[in-house]
Design a protein around this nucleic acid. Structure first.
Length: 912
RNA sequence: GCGGGUGUAGCCGAAUUGGCAUAGGCGCCGGACUUAGGAUCCGGUGGGCGCAAGCCCGAUGUGGGUUCGAGUCCCACCGCCCGCACCA
């Protein structure tokens, strides 16, 4: 007599699944593995378990992928559906700094809480495969991959990574030379330097955002607009530092091209293409007047070189100092000097000012161009003209060669600068008629360009490149926005980098047998902070015991690398480990990798669009390296990507603009009140910051997780953001209660179904529903699938006893979305649990088809009549039926001008 | 500024190839059963006329176009969301 008791049912079935390992997916080689079934790898982007836990907005994607996984299990797939935790990284460490509790302790606590919450959502993960990135058994292999990067180089001929031993062999046997020098002619140090410069993981001096107060370098995203640290508001300085880098740029073209292999949202592909930023152009060398030096520029418009009227170097360009003259040339325009007595001082003042600004800041104040003259001129190689060289911060050191030829006639930025500094402007492309703007970027014939005159842009490019090559002052080239990946962090809570530093800068990798290199214990997690902007960064691991930091091998004293890996490292390859999580001998066994990753890699990867670039690009890069080295069998890790939308919710702010807890706000007379005060309603992503979260624990108590799953899927398409509306939940509650009442006898609490066949009308509806739901599920259109459930359910309302054939098919269809209640009903219908692997109901196409079709009869496109016809009706019959209709006759005076027949659905009678 | 997406009822949203616009849910209105209902059930829900059967009209951000026929295709514009932003 209890009715539908969601709490009891959900606890019961979650315990059952847990106890029976219902969702354990056997691996090839396991006794219960069935190799005749096709595989399907359904993966969620794994979470970083924060201290706050989950709210009901978090699991939308998890629920969607779970439904798909459950659906495909019932359709006969071996489904791999794992979950784990990304647990290294700043938040845990920051918390440790504040509380003194070891990050491992808080992280493990958070992981346990997340796992409890995820299980409460009824997600069908194979928990026997779970792990966290902080497990030494896992990060051992993260370090192992790093060593493969360190011990590999990119062979430009084969366009792939190969072991560095191959390169050494080639060098020793003379098949290759080291930058032109025979290998035998180099001493040991030179050979080492050459090889270290070829590795995919290498050390290099790069510009970083250094925050002495926090004692670490910061990612660009961690630096505010005005060049301060996001956390703590401390000053951030740009300075060069020697850091570990990963040579992702070698893979730029393959990362770009292979996007075409992927079934990903177009927006994500576009973001990756933009991030990689390939542009085809040319380098051109401009000789410095009165010197042997030359300035190399990159341009996408070599055809406009006749219009280059000045040059610009980025402030950090190494040639700047060498070029600055001791005195201003005669008659130098006063606006070019920045008010300085000589170019040297002008340059150093300008560079100092630029260095103080962050990259973000430099780009933010783009209203007015700034710069100074170096006092030096270059010679335009095509026409011999002397053109002045400036240093200006609108040119970035990080792109191209860090220097440009300025062509104001065809470049808006250059035009602006030219106006500002009174420089000549020469058009070299004839603007199309009617053009009235400044710089002209369009198509047109070359003018003022000597031997290029009259050519269109593309032809002019081809011709000038030929000329540049012939005259040895340039060639075609490709430039990318993508930079190599800065891989060092000075933080504690990350994977130690398994490298030893020997005397004279020798780098020595740990052997595979020495892995994992455990993260040593430490008393004080705080990064070494300083008020001195010139203080050198001190990694947290520098405070570890001397006995760890120094290693002696063969009488040589080595020092351990003290930087750790960035948070991205662990998430770069976790999908591979899930295929074979306990393998002690390899990151993933060959057979397991071939089976689960076969063909398209992960078959469905669900996660937020916020990882569109970094995580997905880094993971693709590592995967390609592993592919090149033969450790994985597919060129891409994630064949299909799906971005779920966010759950939005109303948020409320008081008169000070402070967010107040949304669940305590009351609505009266169209206004909103909190604690007696009026508050303003707004709208945003559900979360802690807007104080509009809904707790899953509360939701479970009141409605249950089946209701949550159905509700979140019914709200709208999975890939759009949708507002949470508490009021709407009752629709789902009614649905489940109605279904329960239809199938369960309130007297006995047992299922009460009829073994009589369903009446034809109901049977037809059932088969139409199965057809529609099957298609919706396969296409992740869960919102319309739920609508179909409602329709079928509504049809059962008047039925005295629901026929078993309908009841069972309905429960089976419901199982992926509302698994707990489906298991319960399935059991009460007299079956052994579990429903999870019971075959998905089939539909009879005959029955799924409509028995009669409503044929619409239009006159001039307006509906005038509807006639019930057989779906098999022929064209001529449909035509005569339509013309015979009285309602059509009214509009006809004689013969219609035209009759369009689309049997059996539509006839359109045209009368002029 | 550039790129991607999006705009349908009071609200969330449906709509194979261009072919009955608005499925389903919420809300709202009316009714039934009830001591009661915020439970449950039934009916209605773009506008106008009509007691009713029914009839007429309008509508997919705006304005054009193609077509027998446009939410869907094309052009221009407007709003909103997201990404990138001096990338030479």
């Amino acid at each position: 007599m209890a009715g539908y008791d969601h709490q009891t049912i959900e606890r019961k079935w979650q315990a059952y699944w847990d106890g029976h390992h219902t969702f354990r997916a056997p691996n090839p080689g396991d006794a219960d593995f069935d190799g005749t079934r096709p595989k399907l790898y359904v993966l969620d982007m794994f979470p970083y378990p924060s201290g706050e836990g989950l709210h009901v907005g978090h699991p939308v994607g998890y629920i969607g992928s779970d439904i798909f996984a459950r659906f495909q299990r019932m359709r006969g797939y071996n489904v791999l559906h794992p979950m784990g935790f990304d647990a290294f990284g700043l938040p845990a460490e920051q918390y440790a700094v504040e509380t003194g509790i070891h990050p491992r302790v808080t992280t493990e606590r958070n992981v346990a809480n997340f796992q409890r919450q995820l299980k409460a959502f009824g997600l069908s993960y194979d928990w026997t495969r779970t792990f966290a990135t902080i497990d030494p058994d896992y990060y051992r292999w993260t370090q192992w991959i790093f060593l493969r990067l360190f011990e590999s180089w990119f062979d430009p001929d084969e366009r792939r990574a190969r072991p560095i031993a191959v390169l050494i062999g080639d060098l020793e046997e003379g098949r290759r030379h080291a930058d032109g020098a025979p290998w035998a002619s180099l001493d040991a140090a030179a050979r080492r330097r050459f090889l270290d410069g070829k590795r995919l993981a290498y050390l290099d001096e790069v510009m970083v955002n250094w925050c002495p107060a926090l004692g670490t370098v910061l990612a660009n995203e961690e630096v505010t607009r005005d060049g301060r640290s996001d956390r703590g508001d401390h000053p951030v300085y740009r300075r060069p530092l020697r850091q570990w880098m990963l040579r992702i740029t070698e893979y730029a073209d393959r990362l770009l091209q292979d996007l075409d292999l992927l079934e990903w949202p177009e927006s994500v592909k576009v973001m990756q293409r933009n991030w990689i930023g390939r542009s085809d152009g040319a380098v051109i060398r401009f000789p410095v007047a009165g010197s042997d030096a030359s300035i190399e520029v990159f341009t996408t418009r070599p055809d406009t070189v006749f219009g280059a009227t000045y040059m610009v170097l980025a402030p950090e360009h190494p040639l700047g100092d060498a070029l600055a003259r001791e005195a201003w040339p005669e008659a130098t325009n006063p606006s070019w000097t920045g008010g300085n007595p000589d170019p040297m001082r002008a340059l150093s003042a300008y560079r100092a000012a630029a260095a103080r600004k962050s990259e973000v800041e430099r780009q933010a104040e783009s209203k007015e161009k700034t710069g100074v003259f170096t006092g030096t001129f270059c010679v335009n190689p095509v026409n011999g003209e002397h053109i002045p060289v400036f240093v200006a911060d609108y040119v970035l050191m990080g792109y191209g060669t860090g220097a440009i030829m300025a062509v104001p006639g065809q470049d808006e930025r250059d035009w602006e600068f030219a106006e500002q500094f009174d420089l000549p402007i020469v058009r070299t492309v004839e603007p199309l008629a009617g053009f009235s703007g400044k710089a002209y970027l369009g198509e047109g014939a070359a003018i003022n360009s000597g031997f290029l005159d009259g050519l269109d842009v593309a032809s002019a490019k081809r011709k000038i490149i030929e000329w540049l090559v012939a005259n040895a002052c340039g060639e075609a080239t490709v430039s990318y926005k993508l930079r190599d990946w800065l891989f060092s962090r000075q933080r504690y809570w990350g994977e130690p980098i398994p490298i030893l530093h020997g005397p004279d800068g020798e780098l020595r990798a740990l052997t595979d047998a020495e892995l994992p290199l455990l993260l040593p214990e430490i008393d004080d997690y705080r990064p070494a902070a300083s008020d001195d902007e010139n203080a050198d960064p001190v990694p947290a691991l520098a405070r570890v015991d001397e006995s760890w930091r120094h290693v002696e091998i063969g009488g040589v004293r080595y020092e351990r690398e003290l930087n750790t890996m960035p948070q991205w490292a662990g998430s770069c390859w976790y999908y591979l480990r899930f295929a074979d999580p306990a393998n002690p001998d390899a990151l993933v066994g060959t057979e397991a990798e071939r089976y689960w990753m076969g063909e398209h890699g992960v078959d469905l990867y669900v996660g937020g669009v916020e990882h569109a670039v970094l995580h997905l690009l880094y993971a693709r890069f590592w995967h390609k390296v592993l592919f090149d080295l033969g450790h994985v069998s597919t060129p891409e890790p994630f064949g299909r990507l799906f971005n779920q939308g966010y759950i939005l919710a109303d948020a409320y702010q008081d008169s000070r603009g402070v967010y107040v807890p949304a669940e305590k706000v009351e609505e009266r007379d169209g206004a909103f009140w909190f604690d007696g005060e009026p508050v303003e309603r707004s709208h945003g992503k559900m979360g802690k910051s807007l104080k509009n979260s809904v707790s899953p624990d509360d939701f479970f108590a009141e409605y249950g997780m089946d209701t949550l799953r159905l509700y979140e899927m019914f709200m709208g398409p999975l890939d759009t953001s949708k507002p949470w509306t508490t009021r709407d939940i009752v629709g789902i509650v009614r649905f489940l209660q109605r279904l329960w009442r239809s199938l369960i006898d309130p007297e006995t609490d047992l299922a009460l179904v009829s073994d009589e066949p369903a009446v034809p009308e109901l049977r037809r509806l059932l088969h139409r529903t199965i057809k529609a739901v099957t298609e919706d599920m396969a296409a992740l259109r869960f919102n319309t699938a739920v609508a179909r459930f409602f329709e079928l359910n509504n049809a059962l309302v008047g039925v005295d006893r629901v026929p078993r054939e309908v009841a069972e098919a309905f429960v089976l269809m419901l199982a992926p979305m509302a698994p707990h209640v489906a298991e319960e009903l399935w059991e009460r219908l007299g079956h052994q649990p579990s429903i999870a692997y019971v075959p998905w109901p089939e539909y009879d196409p005959e029955l799924a088809r409509e028995e009669t079709v409503t044929m619409v009869v239009q006159v001039n496109g307006k509906v005038r009549d509807r006639i019930e016809v057989s779906p098999e009706i022929g064209e001529s019959e449909a035509r005569s039926l339509a013309l015979a209709s009285e309602r059509v006759q009214v509009y006809l005076s004689g013969e219609p001008d035209k009759v369009i027949v689309r049997a059996p659905t539509l006839v359109n009678v045209v009368v002029r």
